[in-house]
Design a binder for these strands. Structure first.
Lengths: 92, 92
DNA sequence: TATATATTTAGGCAAATGTCTAAATACTTT
DNA sequence: AAAGTATTTAGACATTTGCCTAAATATATA
């Protein structure tokens, strides 16, 4: 879960996630949305892949990236749980 | 939201959050749960406070820390929204 | 085969992060 | 007022992060 939080702790990477939410894209298309270099985007994509937030599939000379949203489940569960205990304490 | 994700991207800080879920604690009590120095814990608490995850209240010579879970709401909303690929409309 | 296109890898650099010890600040008690 | 307790601030250090350019790899096309 640490890799996931770290992955989400960068605005560029969150923007990439928001892009991929609309449709799958290859690395070049993703890079075109930003003013930083392609190698830097490639690095961000690597971190997102390590955190299992995205999946990459090679298609010819392109590499298509798509979102894997299941990885968020555990995280949301943790956050809700952490929030819930506190509520319980004040509610009861 | 960046400060929040960054705050959550460290295991010690997540443990602090889990501690505070059970009950409010002062800085010394929190530090006693870890093997790292008090100044380091103080720094972690500062980051959590900057991210609005905790609130600190001075009580005599102690400083009591408590969780502020409302800050998670926006984050969970973002994650859920991003996970929902079918509804691509961005609402504010 | 040679050239163009897509993407990553390598290496370097400045800034941010997480840790420490020592010192400073604030409050309490004697 | 002096001493003790709680916590933070300051400064240093190694590691990580995010960015860059240049080079390498892989595929497509003339």
């Amino acid at each position: 879960m640490n890799l996931l939080f770290k992955a989400l702790g960068d605005p560029t990477r969150r923007e990439i996630i928001e892009l991929l939410r609309k449709r799958d894209m290859n690395a070049g298309e993703i890079a075109d949305h930003f003013s930083i270099s392609k190698p830097s985007i490639s690095h961000h994509l690597d971190l997102l892949r390590q955190a299992n937030v995205v999946i990459s599939i090679k298609e010819g000379q392109f590499i298509t990236y798509s979102l894997n949203t299941t990885v968020f489940d555990e995280m949301v569960k943790w956050v809700i749980e952490v929030s819930d205990k506190k509520n319980k304490k004040t509610k009861k």
